[in-house]
Design a protein around this nucleic acid. Sequence first.
DNA 1: CTGTGTAAATTTACGTGGTAAATTTATTAC
DNA 2: GTAATAAATTTACCACGTAAATTTACACAG
Lengths: 199, 199
Amino acid sequence: MPRVLSDTDVADFRERLCEAAERLFAERGPDAVTMRQLAAELGVSPMTPYRYFEDKDDILAAVRTNGFNRFAEALETARESAAGARAIGTAVGEAYITFALEHPHSYKLMFDFNQPHVEQYPDLVAAGQRAQKTMTGYIEDAFAEGLMSGDPMQIGLMNWAAIHGAVILELSGMLPPGGARMIYRGLDDALIRGLRPQD
Amino acid sequence: MPRVLSDTDVADFRERLCEAAERLFAERGPDAVTMRQLAAELGVSPMTPYRYFEDKDDILAAVRTNGFNRFAEALETARESAAGARAIGTAVGEAYITFALEHPHSYKLMFDFNQPHVEQYPDLVAAGQRAQKTMTGYIEDAFAEGLMSGDPMQIGLMNWAAIHGAVILELSGMLPPGGARMIYRGLDDALIRGLRPQD
DNA sequence: CTGTGTAAATTTACGTGGTAAATTTATTAC
DNA sequence: GTAATAAATTTACCACGTAAATTTACACAG
């Protein structure tokens, strides 16, 4: 009987390969990274990764999944670190932009809307939904405190659109460095004012 | 002495190839389109396009440049068709969303922030700046009428980020059809209120 | 300890894509 | 008509993703 890979063996290899892929994808973009390079990075032969991943797309999906999960963690941490709807809103927004600008490559990969057949990677979909839920969920706190009026879902999406739009403008080079944060702060202020109940 | 291609010959070929590329890119995404297919589409041999374009990236850059220019034209037309800052704002915003939803593939290509080495295509950069200028310029009209207070440039970018974010939410399938327009109208209303001078 | 079966890993091989280099075609000035 | 030469085509090469064939090395039986 031959040696059989334990679950942790598999998990270890997958993790090491994801780390390498993340680094190389960030340096050169996913298309410019070859399976042969990835294998060489781990000191194995070119076909070995195929024991652990379906194909290259599967590796990309795993990297994006990790990105979404780390992103969601950063947002959740920010949300827990603050008290009061307004402070939470600020903290989450700042954490969002910080993550996006500190990990631009991950962020770009995660939100690359040209990535095809996302739906066939359930883990990726789940991680994306986790991030989305964290992003919109805290808005409900603001309603609980009577800070805003309207449809919470719609306002959550408005807020999300505003942050994402600001970040993407910066990442596609249409804003000076740091511009996204400035733009978002302006949007946030104006929205808070514009959405006050009494108007 | 041999036949020499006139400027219009070259321009014609480039234009026909861009048309084909745009169509095929939209159908299958740029990575899935090969140089050989593009050449076949024009009825020429695989290497002929290389007389007219540097390489495949150059073709993609040309397609994106065309997209930005048509986009800018659509916005400029909308701007000219309306009178009064508020009406212009509405017209441009609606035209923006209409363009993005009617040409989702162009829009995705144009704003695909994973596209590398943009800076080495001056025409592409110029077309992007033209779109940006149109997008932010009309905000100045609103200031001229005393509709808003603050930094026009910043507010123009805020508005752009809001529209872009809403569009992208819809294009990545996170909104029902028509959702972008709804989200943007909500954002626009709230911003107009939140940015009123007297506050 | 040794032989054996088998999962894992490697090596080999194939089809496709971008594009460089070599070759052919076609046009025009003489 | 013929020579010169830009344009177009053909041929060829290398890199890539990955399928298939082959080799390796470990767990167990005896």
